[in-house]
Design a protein around this nucleic acid. Structure first.
Lengths: 131, 131
DNA sequence: GTCCCTGCAAATCCTTTGCACTCCT
DNA sequence: AGGAGTGCAAAGGATTTGCAGGGAC
């Protein structure tokens, strides 16, 4: 068990992520944080994001668009990814509580979590495409 | 619409993937195919895998372990990923037909597909961990 | 003082791409 | 012949890591 020391960078990363309603990539967050801490490095952002994921304080979303996204909301919920603009949205779809148990029966082992991503075109892009 | 020409490499990649019960990464498939075609290049494997995905003949699985995996089974089904050994297993869990429609109501746009990944420890690794 | 954390840059991993050449059709 | 496909190697993007210095406790 390693001891954790305070760092203003980590605080900033965490609060910046919590303040955002989207699900930024490490790089997007880095750009954002640079406004307050112009000297922070991308490596530090990655290191702290991974640390926060390990601590269970944030969530990493691998939706398949190249870069991982991060989410300060760790409560179980699902995501909608727009293939046109790349935005990742939360879905207030209630958790399928029984689905892990259902999977458990078929999985050759122990299931402890699951992810669901929906893909399609968001309203903004649907509108844009009509023009 | 581009014309498609036969290539023994593409045939080999496709049949090699269909013959496997696991869900290999591009690199794993490359190693496998090299036994038959020692001169095939990794670039060709990637190019053809992407082409086959576009044609809808195979499926790309981005489960978040670094490299994409590929699956010759394009029928809708879900996957179990062992965090210990990295194996990706099929789950004979029946499709949640209504889930896309359910998501549709909350998604700000049009949903056309979804992916579900379960994570945990497979039987082999559970056994190994006890020793 | 100790040890964690940082900035920086180099390294690593996975994937894509440019180019000259080869093989289908 | 024409153009799609290939091998090779270099480029690309995302993420990690080694190191020397800085900050928390």
């Amino acid at each position: 068990m390693k001891t954790l020391k305070y760092s203003r960078q980590r605080e900033s990363i965490k609060s910046c992520l919590m303040a955002r309603h989207d699900h930024p990539t490490a790089d997007a967050l880095y750009t954002s944080i640079r406004e307050e801490y112009p000297n922070i490095s991308l490596g530090t952002v990655y290191r702290n994001l991974n640390l926060l994921v390990e601590l269970g304080e944030i969530q990493k979303l691998t939706c398949g668009d190249g870069a991982d996204h991060f989410d300060a909301d760790t409560s179980p919920h699902y995501h909608f990814v727009c293939r046109d603009c790349g935005q990742v949205y939360d879905l207030p779809l209630k958790t399928l509580d029984n689905i892990n148990q259902l999977a458990q029966e078929y999985a050759a082992g122990h299931v402890d979590s699951h992810t669901i991503f929906f893909y399609g075109t968001c309203k903004n892009c649907l509108k844009k495409n009509l023009q």
